[in-house]
């Protein structure tokens, strides 16, 4: 079975590693990483991942800005925002920019697993 592709975007290597480990637990994904919004956009255009976990506060280019460009490039992109800044205005901005979901840090592992499994189910069923 062809593996699905995931892209994990966060300026913290600790956070990227933690999310990668959870995705690996679910299995079935090849995982790419990016440490800022610009690398995220470039990587998205190169590999067209099935699922993106995207931080907001990052150097060079922030997550919301990257999300807008990713959605303009691919309106079907599944992008989940993972951020500590889950203020009402940030969540609203993220959803308006096209985020599929918003996970607040610190996350429950089961929340990430549920998102990953849903994407697997949806993509495998296509």
């Amino acid at each position: 079975m062809k593996p699905l592709l995931a892209l994990v975007v966060d300026d913290s290597i600790l956070v990227r590693s933690a999310i990668k480990e959870i995705i690996k637990l679910c299995g079935g994904f090849v995982i790419f990483e990016a440490s800022n919004g610009q690398i995220a956009v470039d990587t998205y255009k190169d590999v067209r991942p099935d699922l993106v976990f995207l931080d907001i506060v990052m150097p060079i280019r922030d997550g919301i800005d990257a999300l807008i460009e990713i959605k303009a490039f691919d309106p079907q992109a599944t992008v989940v925002i993972v951020s500590a800044v889950a203020t009402h205005s940030q969540v609203k901005r993220a959803i308006q920019a096209g985020a599929s979901d918003f996970v607040q840090k610190p996350w429950e592992q089961s929340r990430i697993i549920s998102i990953v499994e849903k994407v697997k189910e949806k993509k495998r069923g296509m």
């Binding site: 506060v57 951020s83 500590a84 800044v85 889950a86 203020t87 607040q104 840090k105 610190p106």
Partner: peptide
Amino acid sequence: LHNGLFLV
């Protein structure tokens, strides 16, 4: 993380 929670 702490600052994020502070902002919330």
